[in-house]
Design a protein around this nucleic acid. Structure first.
Lengths: 216, 216
DNA sequence: CAGTTCACCGATAATACTCTCGGCGAAAGT
DNA sequence: ACTTTCGCCGAGAGTATTATCGGTGAACTG
């Protein structure tokens, strides 16, 4: 079935052309005609594959952002394997930093699109942001942060928001050349997270007290 | 000179119409004709006042973002007046939080536009971001953080970036309804900044040692 | 009061984009 | 081999925008 394959190929060519335009930062005024031109097919052919531009944009947004999510999330087990706690914490910051630095165009796209409710790309970007927050919250719970009351959960979400925002802001500084050394960035992130550990220690003390009173 | 006044008035009407469109989040596809229509003047009249859309956008960007800067920066003296150090720190977080929460459309515009190099609005937004960072760095220096070496300065800029990113991220969470209580947000910000104070204490200890060795 | 300026406007040329329609030619079916 | 399918395309109707040009009448000038 060569015909199906050919169609799949032109669809892929259209998607790839659009991906390049979007990653280059020109997604504002992206036009079906421009995508078709870049893909080397006629204008009308675009509409054989997609009902309109939004449908194509939603497709590539899904691909790009789920890829970014996997890239940032995937190597976490590696971070967890670290020999001691200090190094484990450093890796949990270093791994996402490296991933964002390695995908600057995709990272910048995610930032650009996040606050643009009218864009077809924003929905996927927001889903990515939401799942990242959930992941970080889960990580905090695994590290022993308290999560029993709604107020606890709100605090964990806030801490997660701060950690994510910090990693993003410093990655951006790295990409723009202001902070050339990733290790210096990790130093600051470790420093910042030191304050939040008070939350955990308080919770552990309280848990110990609870255990003691049960024993008594 | 009623004619000059009339002209100034229609210019203001055009600016106000554009401001509303931009703050409503429709700055992507904003058109000269749409602005003229909203301002109640003919299309051609737009070009009596501005050479093109970009010129108008740069004008309102300058106005809006310098206003936002003043609003966030202005009440700082009030924060500094606080009775004790703990309350002073809390106010230094609370004041910008309240300002961002009080200007949600403008705040969201600043976020939206920041990573959009092709937008006529981005330049002003980036200037705002840069000056905010300088302000926060200065604040850290005033609070006794070390700033003698380039590495010190980089660290202060990173800490400032983290503080700003944290305030913005949590303000956004507040606006989206996730964190209804500003006091809970301030709690988390205080917690986070606790870790960075290690930098200051180390510097002060070193300064004390220097003084001691000079005395000796 | 006569002449001039000028803020505004209607009309329009030029440009760009979306989406559809009918046809063509090669692959697929029988 | 003959027919059908279908992926692609050229052309074009419909729509929206930018930017300009000449006209108009009221404000300004002397």
């Amino acid at each position: 079935m060569t015909r199906k394959e050919a169609k799949r190929l032109t669809r892929l060519r259209l998607l790839e052309a659009a991906r390049q335009i979007v990653l280059a930062g020109d997604e504002q005024a992206i036009a079906a005609s421009a995508v078709a031109r870049a893909a080397g097919v006629a204008n009308a052919t675009f509409y054989e594959h997609f009902a309109n531009m939004d449908e194509l944009l939603r497709t590539i947004a899904e691909e790009l952002f789920s890829k970014l999510r996997e890239e940032v999330r995937g190597p976490r087990w590696e971070a967890i394997q670290a020999p001691n706690n200090e190094e484990k914490l450093r890796r949990q910051f270093r791994v996402p930093l490296e991933m964002l630095a390695a995908n600057p165009r995709l990272f910048r796209l995610a930032l650009r699109v996040r606050h643009q409710p009218r864009s077809a790309l924003s929905e996927s970007s927001l889903r990515l942001a939401g799942s990242t927050r959930r992941d970080v919250v889960q990580e905090l719970i695994d590290r022993g942060y308290p999560a029993s009351t709604p107020a606890d959960m709100r605090r964990l979400e806030m801490i997660a928001d701060v950690i994510i925002a910090a990693i993003e802001a410093l990655s951006l500084g790295h990409l723009s050349g202001r902070y050339p050394s990733l290790e210096e960035i990790v130093d600051v992130l470790v420093l910042v997270s030191r304050g939040t550990r008070l939350v955990r220690e308080t919770a552990q003390r309280q848990a110990a007290q609870r255990r003691a009173s049960v024993d008594a």
